[in-house]
């Protein structure tokens, strides 16, 4: 193991590009199907694994002029079929409803990374209620994608904070009441699992069966798909790994689980990530690491050039091993 990885691990650095070269892989962009827009870093929660370092104390949020620029890009590019709205809790941005409504008018598929508890908690700083959200989502046929690390309280609350599991269950009931989660419904409700610690996710298919059985039998809840996501060794999760003396071990686990098929399916090949201030990135993780897309000049929504973006070289670094381990990991779950 140590010999095989000697060129990959040098001076405590993990060389993803070297791994690609060893596997004769080149991963250019294939298309831009999804614009993933991070519209605020503010959140009512402060989860242990959060790569965005979100919390109620964060104040960064996308301004209207930048929201409008994103909508203009969607309008001008029919090939961008999806907008994936994330945060933070994206519902805390005052232009959130506007963005959803206008994106739907453009006939785009709208996905929202909804943390469930925001419906119950409301805005953590102003106290503004967010109880309208399930009905709002239903009215605009938004695909709701929500983190629920496990079907039991222990793992969920350990990762997302005390009381989160029970609030999430209450919020899921409200979504089910709107028609979300039924097998034949257009109202899609997907859950996201990520491991509670320094281990890889189990098979997406088998976990989905467990989640469906347990949530139905214990709470009478339904959902459509479960997405398994590998914990990214950056920011809060990296700090936790380092505090527990596990960082190098976790990185070696990811490297040893490198899967070329998963590498071919990495989401950065078909997605662009936009930060609250309009900068463009290959993915949300690169965004949080400040690895902006750079052609002749730093790329933003204000100098958006799809031809240049399709010719770009995707910026890889050690965290990319998280997306290529095992069955692969993306915002849409396993890639293999």
């Amino acid at each position: 193991m140590r010999d095989n990885n000697s060129a990959i691990i040098q001076n405590g650095k993990y060389n993803f590009q070297e791994k690609l070269t060893k596997n004769s892989l080149s991963l250019p962009p294939s298309s831009i199907e999804t614009l993933q827009v991070n519209i605020t870093l503010k959140c009512n929660q402060a989860c242990l694994h959060c790569h965005v370092d979100s919390s109620p104390k964060r104040t960064e949020q996308m301004e209207k002029i930048t929201v409008d620029k994103c909508l203009e890009i969607l309008s001008n590019h029919k090939e961008i079929k999806n907008i994936d709205i994330t945060g933070g809790a994206p519902e805390l941005n005052p232009h959130f409803d506007y963005l959803v409504i206008e994106a739907k008018k453009l006939d785009k598929h709208v996905m929202v990374r909804h943390n469930l508890t925001i419906t119950i908690d409301g805005d953590p700083t102003t106290g503004e209620s967010k109880k309208y959200l399930p009905e709002f989502y239903s009215k605009h046929s938004v695909e709701v994608i929500s983190s629920l690390p496990y079907y039991q309280e222990y793992f969920t609350d350990k990762q997302r904070g005390r009381g989160v599991f029970n609030k999430s269950i209450d919020s899921l009931k409200l979504l089910n009441d709107q028609g979300y989660g039924n097998e034949n419904s257009d109202l899609k409700l997907d859950l996201v699992y990520n491991p509670a610690g320094a281990f890889l996710p189990a098979s997406q298919q088998s976990l989905e069966q467990d989640f469906k059985k347990e949530l139905w039998e214990k709470f009478g809840l339904k959902f459509n798909n479960l997405y398994t996501i590998t914990n990214m060794p950056i920011h809060r999760f990296r700090e936790q790994l380092e505090r527990l003396g596990n960082y190098d071990e976790y990185m070696e686990k990811l490297i040893n689980a490198f899967n070329p098929t998963a590498a071919n399916g990495v989401m950065c090949r078909s997605l662009l990530s936009v930060s609250y201030d309009g900068k463009l990135f290959d993915c949300d993780f690169n965004q949080m690491l400040g690895m902006q897309i750079y052609n002749i000049e730093p790329m933003t929504v204000f100098n958006f050039d799809i031809d240049l973006l399709l010719k770009r070289k995707i910026r890889f670094d050690s965290h990319c091993f998280g997306c290529t381990a095992g069955n692969g990991s993306s915002c849409g779950g396993a890639t293999v």
């Binding site: 222990y154 793992f155 491991p195 610690g197 281990f199 098979s203 088998s206 976990l207």
Partner: peptide, 12 residues
């Protein structure tokens, strides 16, 4: 312990 977690088992 790791294999159990990575196959979806829980501490219970």
């Amino acid at each position: 312990t790791t294999a159990s977690l990575e196959s979806g088992a829980n501490p219970d």
